[in-house]
Design a binder for these strands. Structure first.
Length: 493
RNA sequence: CGGGCUGUAGCGCAGGGGCUAGCGCACUGCGUUCGGGACGCAGGGGUCGGUGGUUCGAAUCCACUCAGCCCGACCA
């Protein structure tokens, strides 16, 4: 369990560094830091099955906050929820050539059930395009049935060789939207609309700046015509794909023979999109904001926005607690706040513990505060302590939460800007990825060979192609032929 | 899937053929503490990851296997 890491919590606090000694510092071992946050903040735990994880209540509460917000956004853009089966006939997956080629190495297949060998094996869904389109064939006859805008919240299974908590697990939770349209234009609009919904969510709720754009052929979804992606920069300067939105063209409509009668009376295949984000967003959230003291959750997604820590002795316990509870009931009206009345642990212990689990705002209330009818507010993001009068607590706390939300976004945005480079020479590109890394915006000719060469030489891949044409005379950073695309390269998760 | 490292109490570790397997933290009880991880006293907790072998005797040696971490290959 310890691996080759020698810096894990040894259970012995030392006076030099009393805070968060359960978490490996980022600069020592970034991967271990990430694992420590997940475990110590009680977001998830390992399961008995390889590559799977148990999402614990604190992690699941975070997912529920994400779900609530996204679900509202999907409904506001006209989508309805439905649920399709986990088990998919193997033959369905094989209907679309690229789709099966892309997914077959990752499939888990049920061959026996009820004590008998199945006539046709059943695939545990890696994604639901095939089973959904088999149903859409039944549901769509006329242009009057379109658009069909359905989303589902579900688990999916992909047999991954190398797994990491939240970032890549064998089973994960996600939502997948599947829409059918009567025109290419409308389907393309839908693809971009949902991409923007995701951007809105990432930036305004997760406080995570994202770059959006189209994927190169080699990186796109198996079965899509175009894949659009959101790419965020983690604190180790690597990119994380945070969500995708696909324009599927008529690929699945043709594979499943989904046609409709147009207003003019002709028969045509429908146009499709699919789009999804997963529990991977929790990993993205961790690696965007958290520090060596533990998790940091942006207020809008924090299951608990504030925690009150009363500081008392046995001699003044009742008075301090009484005042703290007054403050609690006042704050509760407008803020998701809890009080930690535990008497066994010292206040200092509680400070560290609540910092570890990422609560954005701490409210310290001790005897001195009580006498002055004040409290001390402490920001999780900066550690700044702000004394405030009792009757001002709720208003100030709300303002601080807003400010924390904004500051987290700004801090992440600034970090990304500082590590975003526009490069023109191959030498500079190699040098960058040999050293600190980051995002590199560069011109590309569009040839997969150049993309492959860059990957071989630097391990960086094209994260997205920007929606912007190269300036006149621009040349590919790899081969110096005329450029057709502006690409963003990065090492990625 | 390949290379490396690691599995002993909830966590972090020590012990490396021999009698009853230890330490720190955590946990339980009582008391004192309490503004950045407090302390005393008394307790509870172990099929030494699993299976099979070698041996008079295995946590310890061997084989296989499972799991985790790191590095690769692969990967919407």
């Amino acid at each position: 369990m310890t691996g080759n890491n020698k810096n894990r919590y040894n259970g012995t606090p030392n006076n030099e560094d009393t805070m968060a000694e359960r978490i490996t510092p980022r600069k020592e071992n970034y991967s271990q830091w990430y694992v420590d946050i997940v475990i110590q903040a009680k977001l998830a735990d390992y399961s008995p099955v390889k590559g799977c994880m148990v999402i614990r209540p604190r992690g699941y509460a975070l997912w529920e906050k994400m779900q609530q917000t996204l679900d509202r956004m999907f409904k506001e853009t006209g989508h309805q929820n439905a649920y399709f089966p986990l088990l998919i006939p193997e033959s369905f997956i094989k209907r679309e050539a690229e789709h099966i080629e892309g997914f077959s190495p990752e499939l888990a297949i049920v061959t026996h059930a009820g004590g008998e060998k199945l006539e046709e094996p059943l695939v545990l869904r890696p994604t639901s395009e095939t089973i959904i389109w088999s149903m859409y064939k039944k549901w769509i006859q006329s242009y009057r049935d379109l658009p069909l805008l359905i989303n589902q919240w579900a688990n999916v299974l992909r047999w991954e060789k190398r797994t990491r908590m939240f970032l890549r697990t064998t089973e994960f939770l996600w939502q997948e939207g599947h829409t059918a349209h009567s025109s290419e234009e409308e389907a393309r609009e839908e693809t971009l609309r949902m991409l923007e919904v995701y951007r809105d969510f990432a930036e305004n709720y997760m406080a995570m700046p994202v770059l959006t754009g189209i994927k190169s052929e080699s990186e796109k979804f198996a079965g899509a015509v175009n894949t659009y992606s959101l790419e965020a920069m983690m604190q180790d300067r690597k990119a994380l794909q945070a969500g995708t939105s696909h324009f599927l063209g008529q690929n699945f409509a043709k594979a499943f023979d989904v046609t409709y009668q147009t207003a003019e009376g002709s028969i045509d295949h429908v146009w499709a999109t699919s789009w999804g984000v997963s529990t991977r967003l929790i990993g993205a959230l961790i690696m965007t904001h958290s520090d060596d003291k533990g998790l940091i959750i942006p207020p809008k997604l924090a299951p608990i926005e504030g925690v009150i820590i009363p500081i008392f002795k046995s001699s003044n316990k009742e008075e301090v607690l009484g005042y703290a509870r007054e403050v609690l009931s006042a704050m509760k009206q407008e803020i998701r706040v809890e009080i930690d009345e535990d008497e066994q642990n010292s206040p200092g212990w509680k400070f560290s513990e609540w910092e570890m689990v990422g609560v954005p705002l701490r409210v310290e209330i001790g005897p001195r505060d009580m006498e002055a009818r004040k409290v001390v507010l402490v920001r999780r993001d900066t550690g700044e302590k702000i004394p405030v009068a009792g009757e001002e607590v709720t208003r100030t706390a709300k303002a601080l939460l807003d400010d924390i939300q904004q500051s987290l976004f700004e801090r992440a945005r600034k970090f990304r800007e500082e590590n975003y480079h526009r490069l023109d020479t191959y030498k500079d590109l190699r040098k960058l990825f040999e050293s600190e890394g980051g995002f590199v915006e560069a011109h590309w000719c569009g040839d997969p060979d150049c993309e492959g060469k860059i990957k071989d030489d630097t391990k960086a891949t094209i994260r997205v192609l920007l929606d912007r044409k190269p300036v006149d005379g621009a040349v590919c950073i790899a081969c110096s032929k005329p450029a057709s695309q502006v690409a963003v390269f990065s090492k990625a998760y």
